[in-house]
Design a protein around this nucleic acid. Structure first.
Length: 210
DNA sequence: ACATTAAGTGATT
DNA sequence: AATCACTTAATGT
């Protein structure tokens, strides 16, 4: 556990803090497609992402959903931090986009770490800033971008997060993530293909330009 | 061979 | 850009 932490956090956190995390954190593997957190679920701990990728979605009462952003290794869901402290419920759903490893940090500790470790404070504040900026990006995409641009952004983001130019997914699943219909996705994908940006296959898309 | 699921298409709003 | 209604293609059993 300590080695896994060192891999990404060696120069992020102080030694003692790393020791505490290794000692108190609960290591958890989340397989692709599994739920890490769900809407209205009580936060059991702050997740530190060691490897993999988590897709974070917003869901409304009708069950309609939309992707907000992806978390990568070294990220944490800062929103869960405030929620955890105030014992509020979570407003988003987190699903593993691929097999991932997380460390769940106990709620009572993260508070005291704030005053004891500068690196922890910085980490949390940075995390907030990162998440906020990502949400701004998605708001911009929603408000100002046409569906074809949004689709392309989605694909290139996914390439980034998955570190693979091949995306295994169906048109329908993309439609759910962008909150549109499958027919539209199919047509726009074909458009992007004719522009030479991607190549579409059954259950698979290759992103050529990104 | 048949059923199921993914993807393509034309027309309509 | 969404929806409908339908076709075609790929895949599993």
């Amino acid at each position: 556990m300590r080695e896994k932490l060192n891999a990404f956090f060696k120069y992020v956190f102080e030694e003692e803090l790393l020791d505490e995390i290794a000692q108190l954190g609960i290591y958890k593997e989340v397989k692709k497609g599994e739920l890490l957190i769900d809407v209205d679920q009580r936060i059991e701990g702050i997740p530190l992402l060691l490897s993999g990728a988590i897709k974070v979605l917003r869901e409304d009462k009708n069950g309609d959903e939309m992707v907000l952003y992806f978390l990568e290794r070294g990220d944490t869901c800062a929103g869960s931090f405030a929620n955890a402290l105030s014992h509020r419920k979570c407003g988003v759903r987190g699903i593993a986009e691929k097999d991932s490893e997380v460390v769940l940090l106990p709620i009572d500790k993260i508070d005291s770490w704030m005053v004891r470790y500068k690196s922890w404070r910085d980490f949390i504040i940075n995390s907030y800033d990162d998440r906020l900026n990502e949400i701004f990006e998605t708001i911009d995409a929603l408000a100002f971008m046409k569906m074809n641009q949004r689709l392309y952004k989605y694909l290139t983001d996914k390439v980034q997060v998955m570190r693979d130019t091949y995306i295994n997914t169906t048109h329908q699943d993309i439609a759910y993530d962008l909150h549109t219909s499958r027919v539209v996705v199919s047509r726009l994908l074909k458009e992007l293909e004719s522009e030479g940006k991607i190549k579409v296959m059954r259950n698979k898309i290759e992103v050529l330009k990104f």
